[in-house]
Simulated scan of single mutants.
Amino acid sequence: MFETFAALAEPNRFRIVELLRAGPRPVSDIGERLHLNQPQVSKHLKVLKEAGLVDVQPKAQQRLYELKAQPLRELHEWLERYRQLWDARFDAMDELLEELQHKEKGHGRKPRQ
């Protein structure tokens, strides 16, 4: 999990992952779309590959890079646990606010503006 976060923390690598969501792409296309030169793209793709986020498939003279689903699924599952925790906390806060507003109305106070 740490490798996934570390790899995605760099903005250009995050942008590459976002671009690859649409499907496999060669290094040259990634560079053109993100305005990066080939050595930069290759360096970022190497880090993403080492983190297990992308895979490479040779096709004629090109190498196509594509996302690997498993690390992203694992990240989603990990984040989902925290989303559930925060949703529960926000629900509890909403209930408390409703209770306070109800009490305020019951005592004839005007709500603060």
Rank of each mutant, 00 (worst) to 15 (best):
L79H: 03
G108Q: 05
P11N: 13
L97V: 10
M93W: 12
N12I: 06
Q62N: 06
I30A: 01
R81L: 07
L53Q: 01
E18K: 08
D55Y: 11
E74A: 12
P11Q: 07
H107E: 06
A60V: 05
Q38F: 05
P24L: 04
G52S: 08
L100Y: 15
P24Q: 02
R33A: 03
P39S: 06
F5P: 04
L96D: 09
E104K: 10
Y82M: 07
D94A: 10
A69V: 11
L8Q: 00
Q62K: 13
H35V: 12
A51E: 02
E80T: 07
I16T: 02
E104P: 05
E104C: 15
P39F: 03
W78P: 03
R89L: 10
H44I: 03
E18A: 12
D94P: 04
W78F: 14
D55W: 06
R109T: 05
P71H: 04
H102I: 14
R83K: 13
D87I: 05
A7C: 10
A51I: 04
F5D: 09
E3P: 02
Q113R: 14
A88L: 05
E66M: 13
A60M: 12
R83G: 06
R33M: 04
F90E: 06
M93Y: 15
M1S: 11
Q40K: 11
A69K: 03
L97D: 14
L64A: 08
A6H: 12
R63V: 11
E50G: 02
R25C: 07
E80Q: 09
L96T: 14
E3T: 11
R15A: 13
F90L: 15
L36F: 08
A7I: 00
E3Y: 04
K103C: 09
D87Q: 15
W78G: 05
L72R: 03
F90G: 01
V41P: 01
G108P: 02
K43M: 11
G23N: 01
R81Y: 14
H107F: 15
L8P: 00
S28A: 06
F14Y: 07
L85F: 14
E74W: 04
P24F: 00
H102M: 14
R81G: 10
G52C: 08
Q61S: 10
H107D: 04
E80F: 11
T4N: 03
D55V: 14
G23H: 01
E95F: 05
D55I: 11
V27G: 00
G106A: 14
E74T: 13
R73E: 14
F90V: 06
L72M: 07
P24E: 00
H76G: 01
R15L: 06
Q62C: 07
Q84G: 05
G106R: 10
G108I: 02
L100E: 11
D91S: 12
K59P: 00
